[in-house]
Simulated scan of single mutants.
Amino acid sequence: MFSTATAYARPQQFANAYRHIGTETGVSGATPHRLVAMLFEGYMDAVAQARGGMRAGNVERKSRGIQRALRIVGEGLRENLDMKSGGRLAQDLNDLYGYLELRLTQANIRNDEAILDECQRLMQPLQDAWNAIGETVGGFSGRG
């Protein structure tokens, strides 16, 4: 799925992606699994920020949230997929991330909260699955 034989390799690349998109601190010392979990958390926070901006009529807050969500999807998650050895799963995730990028852009242009809801609903199962994997591999508890 990711660009090594296991999802737990290349912690520096995920750390760099995480730092690059401007998400909260806590990167140093985090496992590669935790770094991806932090990307999912950052995405959900960014969508919530965009939703709050829409509701308040605050265009800058809405746009900042959507841009952050787009960067997390594109630079943090999509860019780190291993398309050569990730097989069908990597391709499906790539397609989903591309769709999310399109829909987030449309949400921004149309000022459509329903599209943000869709984007959150599409990402939630991935976040839940990632957290569940962590609970069974290496004692990851989902938040730290």
Rank of each mutant, 00 (worst) to 15 (best):
Q127R: 12
T31Q: 05
A129L: 11
R51E: 14
T31I: 04
R68Y: 08
G87N: 13
G86H: 10
G22D: 12
Y43E: 06
D117I: 07
E118Y: 13
I109R: 01
R121T: 06
Q12G: 04
Q91N: 11
E60D: 12
A5T: 10
G53N: 01
A129I: 08
G98M: 14
A15E: 14
A46T: 04
L104Q: 10
R19K: 08
E60H: 07
Q120P: 02
G42K: 07
L89K: 07
A107M: 06
F140W: 14
L116A: 03
G76W: 02
L102W: 15
Y8H: 05
A9Y: 10
P32M: 07
R143E: 05
T105F: 15
E101S: 14
T105G: 15
A129N: 08
R61E: 12
S85H: 15
G134N: 10
D128W: 07
Q12F: 06
L35E: 03
L122N: 03
S63I: 01
F140D: 15
Q13N: 09
R103N: 07
E101N: 07
F2V: 06
S28G: 05
A56N: 13
Q91A: 07
A5E: 11
I133Q: 04
D45P: 03
I115S: 09
G138A: 04
G26P: 01
T6Q: 09
E24C: 09
D92R: 12
Q120V: 09
T6R: 07
Y8G: 01
R121Y: 02
V59S: 03
A90I: 13
T25R: 15
Y99V: 13
Y18W: 15
E75I: 06
I115M: 11
E135S: 05
G87L: 06
N108P: 00
G87H: 13
F2E: 10
N16C: 05
W130K: 02
